[in-house]
Design a protein around this nucleic acid. Sequence first.
DNA 1: CTACGGATTTTCT
DNA 2: GAAAATCCGTAGT
Length: 201
Amino acid sequence: MLSREFYNRDALLVAKELLGKVLVHELFGQKISAKIVETEAYMGIIDKAAHSYGGRRTQRVEVMYGGPGFSYVYFIYGMHYCFNVVTREEGTPQAVLIRAVEPIEGLEIIAKNRFGKEYSQLSKSNLRNLTNGPGKLCQALAIDRSLNGEDLCGKKLYVQEGESDKISIVSAKRVGIDYAEEAKDYPWRFYIKDNIYVSVK
DNA sequence: CTACGGATTTTCT
DNA sequence: GAAAATCCGTAGT
């Protein structure tokens, strides 16, 4: 798995380098894994789109103020979870939102979690919508509030190296942050070019 | 293919 | 009391 030091850097750098790596959740002795294909950097104090903008420090965002390499999971729109990786040292509240992944292992569990069906019964539309969004991948990988604050340098939820294929990275505006004034146009979303699981091209 | 609105509840003001 | 780092179904082109 990735070292604590990997996460102890600016979210912009970590967001780019997480692309192509593999997110793993071990649950009930089963392994669910998926390649990270889309991320967004949230740069903390100076970023109007970040939950920690201006040093806002509430119960919800507390984990962002802790050390690097821990998970930040929050509940949004009354029904979805979003999974982030906390970056930078204690006191500097940055994070990287994982926006989309490509399923690798545990396909049956993923299919069941998302659509309550066997993998072989999924429609073409089902397959395309398995993990191509922040809320969708949390449902697919069974990530919920109980995993908020989880140590990603542990054995339950972690990120490991992927295949060392060369990937082409695209930068784009972040999604769903129209309230963030000038910050809404910053090119702080990154994704793997031509990957079909990317949520917004 | 795009556009739109409803769902549903935590979180913060 | 309002907004939210989203998703899904339906209707229209």
